[in-house]
Design a protein around this nucleic acid. Structure first.
Lengths: 340, 340
DNA sequence: TTGTAGGCGTTATCAG
DNA sequence: CTGATAACGCCTACAA
């Protein structure tokens, strides 16, 4: 005969069964009162709810996930937490998903596909109902993991062919548009400052090159590329490199506003007049860009909206509906200000 | 007799039992090979690991959490994701906890104790092994939830008496120190710009008032308080209000660098010379502050280190060790630059 | 070093 | 509308 004492592992937490005993009903009925209130009589439901409140019952998500094979959670992977571009993305995601009862498992990859793979592996153990991921530069193993798990996945920020779900903008087009703007202003020796060198930066660079090429204004000396993470301080440093390498440069397209702000601050320090001596353009339209002196010409990107729409698309996929369109281009805007 | 067909809910995922069958051993041995490799013979472990790799097994966290009553996850609550002060905190937390096998459940409260309560409730359902939370302005219900659940909790950013665990700095002292710096520079009509008005801002304000009072320099006309979330644009706006309300103000202590940057930009636009006509000081030492012209005098706060140390303290508590000290003051530094 | 038995808290299934 | 039963995948306890 068994003399084992039952394990008590739930840390003293009240369980469904205890609520049931307290009310004089069964666990499954309490479960229904919580998840499908309309299927339980008003009288019983009222007593259950009061017991839940007085006993301080909290559902156990692990048990629920195990029994139902749904976790009500979505994994969201972004390259960096310390870049407001991506935290705004997260806010759009959160505003949609929280309203539908999902939790977000946030992971930042530090711009590393290997780190991303490790995070995906870790988060798949939680059986997320969906995955939101930034860009398309996943490792083969990551792609394999995602497809094997059959989790619906929506990519953010960039766009690809219609074999994947994505919400974003054409980074290449945006790079091209900004360069065209500078050309239309009459600048001809247009440099490019690139940091981090993630895929989106490289696409902007390609757009920049294409625009210059089409205008017969190739200017290779004006390209400064540095894989270091972007920052204002790096912008200061790269401007120094540029001025040595291409002193006749008359306009500078920075791959993002952080670099551009650093450039503006350093120009001010060195007494370089912007835009008269050097025009400066950025990318992303961060909060500071509209207020700095001179105000910064940049590309406005709809980060919040991208997160919002990507979450909405994922919501459809999780309901086994087919989103239409499957690839959503939310565009960008060239915001012309004083610096060009 | 029962003719029920077994449920297949795991989404086709390989299970521990299937690995065991494949290798010709039992599930528990496979479990050991994963969690306590040294307790399984080399030969068997090798075969198990190879089976895991070829079958692409991923542990089911829900099942593990349910059976072991540990979730290997820590809930981390911050007021805002779009404020780099808190994302740097998160990076410190992450660097410690990930190395110890914990996942972080990140939640942003939007500076609302009610939202915080709702997040705590939601995250407690996941049975986190620990909680990191910002500040001490929790609702009574939040405190109740946390104490009932017996989860170890470490507070970040602020300090309190030794009845709670905390890592942070004395916000009051920092506000006082900056104001003393301005007084020592000879400024006598020192204003204060406050936004958001969260507890930390109010503590800085109290320090500011105490310093002025001690120097017989009370200057109520110079206080502008606005509960709107902080931003550069708000700094621009509040400077306008200040100049109307207290035109003789000679120095301005902004509750954070965002406001201060807005003030600097607007001063530049209006041709107000800083610091000759108006000295400007901020708080937090954000990335831009060292590069803007003039460079910004501010209080440097060790966010990353706070996150790091708070996570380390929580780690101890989760191991049922008593941290020493239980309240860790990581201090601050007055960073004097050109703007004062 | 390996295995057996049973339970963790919840929900799906089927029955009343 | 309510309930009995089993199952989800894994781990603790105990045994061999």
């Amino acid at each position: 005969m068994s003399t084992r004492k039952p394990r008590i592992t739930h840390g003293g937490r009240v369980t469904l069964t205890e609520i049931a005993q307290c009310v004089g009903t069964s666990a499954i009925t309490v479960s229904r009162a919580i998840n499908e209130p309309h299927r339980v009589s008003d009288e019983l439901r009222a007593r259950i709810e009061s017991a839940i409140a007085t006993l301080g019952y909290l559902p156990n998500r692990a048990a629920r996930a195990l029994a139902s094979a749904r976790s009500d959670s979505v994994a969201v992977l972004i390259p960096s937490l310390s870049n407001t571009v991506f935290t705004e993305l997260l806010e759009g995601v959160r505003d949609v998903l929280h309203g539908h009862g999902y939790r977000t498992l946030i992971g930042d990859t530090r711009y590393s596909p290997d780190e991303e793979e490790s995070l995906i592996r870790a988060y798949l153990e939680h059986s997320p109902d969906g995955v939101l991921i930034t860009g398309f530069d996943q490792t083969e193993a990551t792609k394999q993991l995602l497809s094997t798990s059959r989790v619906p996945v929506v990519h953010m920020m960039e766009l690809m062919d219609s074999t994947t779900y994505a919400v974003g903008l054409q980074q290449y087009d945006a790079g091209l548009a900004m360069t065209s703007h500078l050309l239309s202003r009459g600048y001809r020796r247009i440099g490019f400052l690139g940091a981090q060198l993630d895929p989106r930066v490289m696409q902007r660079l390609a757009g920049y090159r294409a625009a210059l090429n089409a205008a017969n204004c190739n200017y290779p000396a004006g390209e400064i590329l540095d894989a270091t993470p972007s920052s204002i301080g790096l912008g200061v440093h790269l401007l120094d490199r540029l001025l040595k390498q291409a002193p006749d440069c008359d306009a500078l397209f920075c791959c993002n506003d952080d670099l551009a702000l650093g450039v503006l601050f350093e120009c001010q320090r060195r007494g370089i007049r912007v835009p008269q001596q050097l025009a400066v353009a950025g990318f992303n339209d961060l909060a500071a860009s509209a207020w700095v002196s001179p105000t910064l010409t940049t590309i406005a990107t709809p980060r919040y909206e991208i997160g919002h729409a990507a979450a909405a698309m994922l919501l459809q996929l999780m309901k086994h509906e087919l989103p239409d369109p499957t690839v959503l281009d939310l565009g960008f805007a060239v915001v012309v200000r004083e610096s060009t």
